[in-house]
Write a protein that binds this DNA or RNA. Sequence first.
DNA 1: GTAAGATGTTGACGCTGTCAAGATCTATGA
DNA 2: TCATAGATCTTGACAGCGTCAACATCTTAC
Lengths: 208, 208
Amino acid sequence: MTDKKLPKARYHHGDLRTSLILTASAMLKDNGVENLSLRKLADQVGVSRTAPYHHFKDKNELLCAIAEQGFSHWKLQLEEIFENPDLNEEQKLRAFIHGYISYAAQNPEMYDLMFGRTIWKQNSATDSLKDIAYPTFQFQVKMTRDWQHKGLLPASLDTLRLSQVTWGTIHGIARLLIDGIYADASHIDEMCETALRMFVLNRQEVDK
Amino acid sequence: MTDKKLPKARYHHGDLRTSLILTASAMLKDNGVENLSLRKLADQVGVSRTAPYHHFKDKNELLCAIAEQGFSHWKLQLEEIFENPDLNEEQKLRAFIHGYISYAAQNPEMYDLMFGRTIWKQNSATDSLKDIAYPTFQFQVKMTRDWQHKGLLPASLDTLRLSQVTWGTIHGIARLLIDGIYADASHIDEMCETALRMFVLNRQEVDK
DNA sequence: GTAAGATGTTGACGCTGTCAAGATCTATGA
DNA sequence: TCATAGATCTTGACAGCGTCAACATCTTAC
């Protein structure tokens, strides 16, 4: 009598774009980007396989839209640390390192999408994604400068280079973890603390 | 009269396995792992599309075999640095960092295959690959211990954690470069030097 | 109320990895 | 020497993929 699925009652979905992003994010988290296909996604949402093409030019645009969501969430988490009045500068740096790597460890597929080669390698990021990602990258430089001025990081080193190296460090640790090269996540705390020591111990010597 | 291709004269290829690895390595270097298909590879080598399956269980095994080649080459390059009698310890550390990141920058696709999630994430590395990769990983730990004993790296930090962090640092910088997040390779020298400073400056303070 | 545009549908194409079944060559041992 | 087992290579087939073209349906604006 009726259709097999109730939601199919309407010809138009209503808010397909949002549904696609949300469902795709969930599928990404569960099965990884290599198991995320537009056809399975459309099926899961309950539309035909080409319906998504009226909302995203191609698969890449969908992935960029998912990454955008990731950056929004990410940004909130960063700001929470830096606006916490109960933390001194060293505690903030520690919280940042720990928060960064924990986010990656808890959302490995999203982290890979946000900071991995799938999107960035061939310069395939959409303008919309760049608009939110680039400021995030630059925020890292700003933080580094702040910490240099406050004496936590060595002021003698070039800010841009230092921020590339410190970011490289936590990015590299995150990647070793989520790519399965160091599968053991139980060492995260110790690794974060070791990284912090390496960053901060320079201070007195360099700035004396 | 004759076949369109001379090499097709023989039914058996002769050394197909080696040919596949070599040709696949070249295709990988040129077009990246995402454009490397078994069918194009077989076509290039001049065999039918399923011929490779008599030498590799599946595509993953082929990729692992390519990565093995990469590790062999890699290992030679490392040993060259450490057996150079003209370098003192700090120069060796500098040469190691620079050599590591230069290798990645010059062989981005191979580096990604060797140290990326394609192979390692789902634990899909073959035993044969693990046999050559794991010692390479452990070699990094050994070097770190050496440099700690020689006073170049802080002896107060746990060797394993420190080696994870230092490797994470250069791995992270390499990834930022080859994934196109920092596309500008002209800063490699400065970034390496900044990383070195961060590693080494701790020395006097920690070991005094 | 009709026309335009947004949104959804089915059909089709070429690409992919991989399995099954059969063809051909090589090597082993009676 | 010669059959035969095993290694190697072939074509045929299948399901899954991203994407384009053509058509259907609903919504919105004049």
